[in-house]
Design a protein around this nucleic acid. Structure first.
Length: 291
DNA sequence: TACCAGGAGAGCG
DNA sequence: CGCTCTCATGGT
């Protein structure tokens, strides 16, 4: 039986230059799973199934939907891919990356979920991050309505929920030394000491500085939150993959100081530097896997 | 089995 | 400062 028959709401969004698989599976978000021809996951407190076909994304939810803005925002449906990639520097590396990753988009995620999952990402492979997040959600997420033929859906546990847990609870989710960091962040957010909503109105440098006060949040994780949750294009997370890509493509494989790479990134990639970063990341990882 | 993963932070020289 | 070591766990 087609799932469309049991979905409570369904809507088709025409898109162009949108690679849904690359977007949902490029290390920005860690909860999407392949479901038939599409993807199923949770956005906020909603179970969603997404499928791309014939220039449109079809979305199905388990509950009725009055307003789809939450989905349009998450998927950044209003972003113009050609316009964004058109601002990239006119050099061979970026041209190759854009060619290889046509339709790759940045998502706009919930700040708490994004910050928390990237705290958990430290020195972890993507498959392992997904695993940790899955355990955390299964144990402490809120049960969400989902179609009958799907396993029970869970929300990402809110900051107050996580703040009420113990380090032992979190370690049992296989997150190891990241447990006290996640707990500390949850407590800071739950207590109001750190107002994630207010960061949206602050300059990137100030928001970054606020995030980096948290234990377990350095420059890289702060920049991931700034880019993937707040859409800050002047955030340019440099991880091992981006570092490899920059060294190989722009520095003749030489060893380059991290701070120097950040300077280069800030001046070279233009007004959508954050977007460019995601292209370099995905492009470099694709080549590694021989895909 | 051994190695290493989308870091951060403490400790050292 | 700038470098090295450690942290926890599981995939490959």
């Amino acid at each position: 039986m087609p799932e469309s028959q049991i979905a409570a709401a369904r809507r088709v969004f025409p898109v162009c230059d949108y690679d849904l698989a690359a977007t949902l599976n490029s290390g920005q978000a860690f909860r999407w799973t392949a479901a038939g021809e599409g993807w199923s996951g949770v956005i906020g407190r909603r179970w969603v199934r997404l499928q791309l076909a014939a220039g449109a994304i079809t979305a199905e939810t388990a509950l009725p939907v009055a307003d789809w803005i939450w989905l349009a925002s998450y998927l950044q449906l209003d972003a113009n891919w050609a316009e964004i990639t058109g601002t990239f520097p006119n050099d061979a590396p970026m041209a190759a990356a854009v060619r290889a990753c046509r339709g790759l988009r940045l998502l706009r995620q919930d700040p708490w979920e994004c910050l928390a999952t990237f705290i958990l990402s430290s020195t972890k492979q993507i498959v392992q991050i997904r695993q940790i997040v899955a355990i955390l959600c299964a144990r402490y997420g809120e049960v969400l309505p989902a179609p009958g033929n799907h396993p029970a859906a869970r929300s990402f546990p809110s900051a107050p929920v996580v703040a009420a847990l113990t380090e032992t609870d979190l370690r049992a989710c296989r997150m190891g030394f990241r447990a006290p960091s996640l707990l500390g962040a949850a407590r800071a957010v739950a207590s109001g000491e750190l107002d994630l909503g207010a960061l949206a109105g602050r300059p990137t440098s100030e928001a970054r500085e606020r995030l980096m006060r948290l234990r377990g949040v350095g420059r890289k994780i702060a920049d991931c939150a700034l880019l993937f949750a707040y859409g800050r294009q002047d955030a340019f997370p440099v991880d091992v993959w981006v570092m490899r890509a920059l060294r190989e493509l722009y520095f003749s494989r030489r060893e380059v100081n991290l701070e120097r790479l950040r300077e280069f990134a800030a001046t070279h990639f233009g007004p959508y530097a954050g977007y460019a970063q995601q292209y370099l990341f995905h492009y470099r990882r694709m080549r590694e896997r021989g895909a």
